[in-house]
Nucleic acid binder design. Structure first.
Lengths: 314, 314
DNA sequence: ATTTATTGTGAGTAATATTCACATAAAACG
DNA sequence: CGTTTTATGTGAATATTACTCACAATAAAT
């Protein structure tokens, strides 16, 4: 448990400011001036990093130097590292450590179709707390990515080092444009053109299992992204499996209907944090807001609820 | 020009691995084991950072330690910094510095409505080059954010330290759902309900100036995001000013029409890089692809083009 | 050819990082 | 309740390293 050795290959950290300044100025002498050192110190610092990495960072041509490809790569990471640390120190001096920025990692489709349209409301309610939204899917490394919280669909094992707080259980069901539901109800779902997404190829199977349906598709079409399949459904191209959060606003606005209702897929959406949300007031604020916004997300849109459009009973 | 002193407040960098390990283990002794040092070395490293910052990083209670708020903030930056550097070193060792990841910073609305739907195509065409997309608006600091390129609407002064490459000139015009254009043409634009976005409050004025229109709104409505106003237009709530990239796909799919055509707004969309795109093969690849995808973006959708729906002549 | 601007380097020195040994403190244990 | 165990803090000695200085080397600028 305690011998989680993180084996890193780090350059000599103390030499990084010298390297960064030298790269910025493309000159060891200017870097020396900036840092109030001698050019020899810069030269040795750079040489030290090069020795450690076994790669040349600069191309030296008599009166000027410039970065090699390796140097460019290291500069990118170095600048990010130094600026990030500088920002942290400033935050600490100004706000005693409580950063007024909450960095949220969210899956792209959920962010686009659910979170972003609502973030304006959060900003209005909490003008002091800025949300920095990053789109990313799959396993998350909060520390490495510098994120405070992540929102994920818990369809994979989430590292035990994190605290996961359940947000809502995912419900999903076939969605199509309002004009097509009669067609579907007249016969059955097998009349429909099924829209698939390669990012979640089992969506239809999961739904069939959850709802006990035995339907097969009349025709099928594949898209690269879930987002795209849903857009196609809005655009009357067929019927897609819509997870509730991603189609919530479309259902509410009448752009889509879910004539067969929604069934739980067995997956939860969770909030991933390093510590329990209550420990960080920013996170607890965000969490409370999320839960309030998601009030009608968790079973509230099952058959019997009027959000679904007219054909909610199968 | 050369005396751009970047005044940073950095913690003692060499002490950071000790701090990070101590924070991770919540124990100085475990950290010492991991780093093959004595607990005294860890204690002094942490104390050194605390002295420099003038803040306590750990709460010491006899047999355990945990982070203060300031410590948590510094840990976030430190982890990100060390992991970022580690990644750079690994890239350098594996690929001699050429990272197989291209980090792209893009404005959220453009990313959502134009870039993301196309990225799948890029990934298929270039499976070796992964795109890491970050949503951010306004001024960009490529180095600080660790981004290779940024895509921006050049509506503000862009720092001279960057190379800006023009992508296309923005065209914009009123867009509404296909059923409403007859209403508009029957009278004029003043019959319409104008949809505004607080993120670009001058959009209608800019268009009126560009097109010479003197119209005024029959009624108006405000939204928090451009994205939202456009969604409202799709949803038949009124007429919004649609910049071509953001409504391109909606026009093409017939969800929206632009009965009065598009006029240049005077703003360019640009690619922002540290060096000319040709110098980095990843960037030049991405740039070429962008230009190919944007083939019909630059004036190609002006009145007279059939992309606009039936009412393209005013 | 001389000057100028730049980086590399050996040797000495200044600074600092690390250890060792001991001090301290409170929980755990019998 | 005393003893042991597990932690961290710290003074002094020591090992390491970072930095400077002075000089070397190089090639462009004059």
């Amino acid at each position: 448990m305690s011998n989680i050795h993180i084996k890193r290959h780090l350059p000599p950290l103390a030499a990084l400011p010298a390297f960064e300044a030298a790269a910025r100025h493309q000159s060891f002498s200017r870097a020396a001036e900036e840092l109030h050192l001698t050019h020899g110190a810069i030269s040795r610092a750079v040489a030290q990093i090069e020795d450690r990495l076994g790669v040349e960072l600069f191309v030296r041509r008599n009166r000027r130097v410039w970065l090699t490809a390796a140097g460019e790569r290291l500069l990118k990471a170095t600048s990010a590292a130094l600026n990030g640390l500088d920002g942290a120190v400033e935050d600490i001096h100004r706000h005693d450590g409580a950063s007024p920025i909450l960095t949220v990692s969210c899956e792209p489709s959920l962010a686009m179709r659910w979170l972003m349209p609502r973030l304006g409301g959060f900003r209005e309610a909490n003008p002091d707390l800025n949300i920095d939204l990053r789109l990313a899917g799959g396993p998350v490394d909060l520390l490495a990515d510098g994120c405070d919280v992540a929102i994920r669909r818990a369809d994979y094992g989430i590292s035990e080092q994190y605290i996961t707080t359940r947000l809502w259980a995912e419900h999903a069901g076939p969605v199509c444009d309002p004009d097509c539901w009669e067609t579907i109800l007249a016969g059955n779902l097998s009349n429909a053109r099924w829209l698939h997404a390669r990012t979640r190829p089992d969506a239809w199977d999961v739904w069939k299992r959850a709802s006990g349906s035995e339907a097969t598709a009349a025709s099928e079409q594949y898209f690269d992204h879930f987002f795209f399949a849903l857009q196609a459904a809005v655009n009357r191209l067929g019927t897609a499996i819509g997870p509730l959060p991603l189609v919530h606003d479309d259902l509410k606005a009448g752009r889509l209907i879910a004539p067969l209702g929604m069934a739980p897929t067995g997956y939860d959406y969770v909030l991933i944090t390093l510590d329990p949300p209550v420990r960080d007031p920013r996170i607890s604020l965000f969490f409370e807001w999320l839960m309030a916004e998601a009030g009608d997300m968790d079973g509230g849109a099952l058959p019997g609820n009027d959000m679904m459009g007219p054909g909610k009973k199968i």
